[in-house]
Design a protein around this nucleic acid. Structure first.
Length: 433
RNA sequence: GGAGGGGUGGCAGAGUGGUCUAUUGCGGCGGUCUUGAAAACCGCUGUGCGGGAAACCGCACCGGGGGUUCGAAUCCCUCCCCCUCCGCCA
């Protein structure tokens, strides 16, 4: 959520920044300012009336105490009309506030001024490249072929169980998935000093709104229902990412400055409707309704937000370096950035069988956008309440990492070798048919 | 699912319609005293919104929402959460 005071006082700046997203949100600013103006006008009026009423009510109390009943009754009659006027104006204020909030919740974050202005992913600047494309002497198989030959994933039975877009990992596939999760959590907790948490996989509406998934993108997520009780539908949602529960851990709290920075990492499955997304109907592991991910979350002082983002990005890159997977880092241009983010880096890993880069991590600083939505603050040394920066990054997404791994390390005989860093977890150096 | 008990400030814990501004204690911050500290004593203490250059003033907030009333932490309705016990259950 953007600061209404910022919109009020630096309207042109906000308008210009929003316009860089190329989504037309800046057109809503006039409506916001009008609603804000109206709200403040009525609020002023009603608060003065309330001050009068409070004063008179106290006087009535005093008169009653002195048994001056007649005088008290006279004052009551006099005040009764004020009450009616107050309820009327209160309704108007509430209405203006609701309208204002409804619009504000739909406005995306302002891109940081460091972000390149652009329209689509084609405008994203490449930041760096690590390693090089695997030198495969034979025609590389796709992960689908490899997974079927090695019986790592049973695609057909997964769709029998849950429909398209779901995976049934089997035998070494399941063990590889589990080994990757364990490897990632160990790396981030021991080497990078994140505190591991294991959150609920279903969250309420406030969490979805807090990180920016609601209200604008409500159609992208799975709502759940308890049994046949339709009245419970839409109270809880399957998490689309661990960011949703974990970034909300301190929602509605005022932290002490000394508590910052907070580093959390969490493994969770992620559930996504992927409504309208290409590829979810086709076989494979690139775009699915459920995948595993290890997520990194930071809550930091604003002045450290961008240094911490660089470190977080490096933590995620470390995963691919240890696994020996070629990747590149791009920065998303203003037109390609997510709703809540002020600056985002994507890490894309090379998948030889796909002959393309796959996004396995997206690392963002949302600045104070989410903190405002969830009323998360910290008290600085001067005793002022400030909004912290909230950062998130995948460290990393699993299904696509799995794809890159098996496609990169495939051998001519159809087996897949396992990089040294992962061998202690999987307890083998090669998967064969 | 059933029965009962609860939700008040950083924490503990009073307050069941008004006359004082939500008792009191602990903690925290500042001060007095002291070589220093402790103790003692004194003062201060939350959040949001609006107005204001500021000092400050006003409004709201006692789990959330709504209602009754001139006036609600207190009464009524409703929802949420926590605790205890019973049932079912991994």
């Amino acid at each position: 959520m953007l600061d209404i005071k910022l919109i009020r006082e630096k309207t042109d700046f906000v308008r210009e920044r929003l316009a860089t997203r190329n989504a037309g949100d800046e057109k809503k600013l006039d409506e916001i300012l009008a609603l804000d103006e109206q709200r403040r006008k009525i609020l002023n009026e009603v608060e003065q009336l309330k001050a009068t009423r409070n004063r008179v009510s106290k006087e009535i109390g005093a008169l009653m105490g002195q048994k001056k009943t007649a005088e008290a009754e006279a004052k009551k009659t006099e005040t009764r009309q004020i009450g009616d006027k107050i309820s009327e104006l209160d309704k108007q204020v509430a209405e203006a506030e609701q309208k204002l909030e409804a619009v504000l919740l739909q406005i995306p974050n302002l891109p940081n001024e460091k972000v390149k202005i652009g329209k689509t992913s084609e405008d994203n600047p490449e930041i760096r490249v690590w390693g090089q494309k695997a030198n495969i002497e034979f025609k590389p198989k796709t992960h689908v072929e490899l997974c079927e030959k090695l019986k790592l994933v049973d695609f057909a039975r997964a769709s029998k169980i849950s429909g398209s877009g779901f995976l049934l990992y089997t035998n070494w596939g399941a063990r590889l998935e589990r080994a990757l999760i364990q490897f990632l959590l160990d790396l981030h907790t021991t080497e990078h000093k994140y505190t591991e948490v294991s959150p609920p996989f279903m969250v309420n509406r406030d969490c979805m709104t807090g990180v920016g998934q609601f209200p604008k993108f409500a159609d992208q997520y799975y709502g759940v229902q308890e049994g046949a009780d339709t009245s419970t539908f839409g109270k809880l949602f399957l998490i689309p990412t661990a960011e949703t529960p974990v970034a909300n851990i301190h929602r509605d709290e005022i932290l002490k400055e000394a508590q910052l920075p907070i580093y959390y990492c969490a493994y969770t499955p992620c559930f996504r409707g992927e409504a309208g997304a290409a590829g979810v109907g086709t076989r494979g592991m690139i775009r699915v309704h459920q995948f595993d991910k290890v997520e990194l979350i930071k809550i930091t002082k604003p002045e450290n937000g961008y240094d911490e983002l660089e470190k977080l990005l490096a933590n995620a890159e470390k995963v691919l370096q240890l696994l020996g997977l070629h990747y590149r880092v791009v920065q998303l241009c203003t037109g390609d950035m997510g709703f809540a983010s002020a600056l985002t880096y994507d890490i894309e890993v090379w998948a030889p069988g796909q002959n393309q880069y796959l996004e396995v991590s997206s690392c963002s600083n949302c600045e104070d956008f989410q903190a405002r939505r969830m009323a998360l603050r910290y008290k600085n040394e001067a005793g002022e309440n400030k909004f912290p920066h909230i950062l998130n990054g995948s460290g990393t997404a699993l299904a696509r990492l799995f794809v890159a791994l098996v496609e990169t390390y495939q051998q001519e005989d159809g087996s897949v070798t396992i990089p040294a860093a992962l061998q202690p977890y999987l307890k083998t150096d090669r998967i064969t048919a």
